[in-house]
Design a protein around this nucleic acid. Sequence first.
RNA 1: GGAGAAAUGGCAGAGUGGUCGAAUGCGGCAGUCUUGAAAACUGUUGAGGGUCACACCUCCGGGGGUUCGAAUCCCUCUUUCUCCGCCA
Length: 423
Amino acid sequence: MLQLQVIRENKGEISKALQKRNIDASSLLDDILQLDEKRRTTQTQLDATLAESNKLSKEIGMLFKSGKAQEANVLKKKTGTLKEDSKRLGDELNGIAEELQSLLYQIPNIPHESVPAGNTDEDNEEIFKEGDIPTLVDDAQPHWELAKKYDIIDFELGVKIAGAGFPVYKGKGARLQRALISYFLDKNAEAGYTEMQVPHLVNEASGLGTGQLPDKEGQMYHVGGDDLYLIPTAEVPVTNLFRDEILSEKDFPICYTAYTPCFRREAGSYGAHVRGLNRLHQFDKVEIVRVEHPKNSYKALDGMVEHIKNILRELKLPYRILRLCGGDLGFTSALTFDFEVFSTAQDRWLEISSVSNFETYQANRLKLRYKDENGKSQLAHTLNGSALALPRVLAGILENYQTADGIEIPKVLVPYCGFDKID
RNA sequence: GGAGAAAUGGCAGAGUGGUCGAAUGCGGCAGUCUUGAAAACUGUUGAGGGUCACACCUCCGGGGGUUCGAAUCCCUCUUUCUCCGCCA
């Protein structure tokens, strides 16, 4: 959520920057400013009314104390209209504040200046590419065929238990999955991220804090009986650890990592490109989250990108990095880099990480602040990234490491797996 | 799940209808002293709205109510603790 004060001062620039997202926000921004104006005048009126009645109440108290009950009763009568007024103004103010809030929720984050304009993922800008694309055997297969051939993932069995998009990992498939989780967590810890274990269900306030609510409600599984949401990413519980916190400057940098399963309804996603592990309702992911001083957040973002590069180098997977264009950029993000692994057998790029700087957008919703050198509260910057999302890394490994007599395991994972080949 | 108790500032903890945004202690910050530090002493120290700055307004777990006036009384929700039951 953008700060009102920022909108007040930079309406023109914001409106212009949002055009990169193909959004014409100027009339919405006007509405917001108008409503804000109305909010402040109403607030002022309410404050004056309350001040008046506070004053009277004090006088009444004094009069009663000094035994002048009659005079007190005269004043009492005067408070009646003040009460009505403040009730009316208070209701009005609440209504305005609510409306203002809902308008503010509709404005996405301002894209960073480096974000290219564009409509779809075709307009994303490739900024880096590394790793050799392997030459595979002639009858190379996509991972869903390999999974069946080696009996390591059973999609049909998952359908029986839960439904499509809930695979069952078996034997070496399950072990490889666990190996990846441990490997990622170890790499992140090595890079200075503190490992956390967090709830996999969150309340509404948490969803609002990181921006999944109110507008993307349909993307999360909702547990009606207890009004909780299954997390779509560890970003939600981990970032919300800092909701309503005021940090001190020396607390920075804050670097956390967490493994969690992720649950996404993915309503409306069908077709061949969501086959196998490409898109799931439940998948595993190791996430990194940072809370930073505003002046360091872009350096931190670069650091996260470098860190993920290192992991992919170790896994020897061919990958590229995209700078997302305005149209593809997430609602709450100012700048996002997507990592994609090339899946040779599917002949396509698979997104395996998304690294973003949210600047103050989430912090404003979270009320995540720090005290600056003058002792004033300032909003912190939040960032996060996948390091990494499991299923597509698994797909990439299965497909790129397949040989005529089995699937080789990347060297760095062998100690975690306890085997070096799936056959 | 049943019965009871509680929720106050960074923490501990007073306050049971009116000069209470809230005593006191600890912690934090600044200063004095010291070569420096510790100790001691002095001062300062919640958040938000509003204002050029003040004034002023709101917040004592959340929401609602009673009252001229609520941290204090009532209702409700949530959470925590104790006891019982159940249980990985």
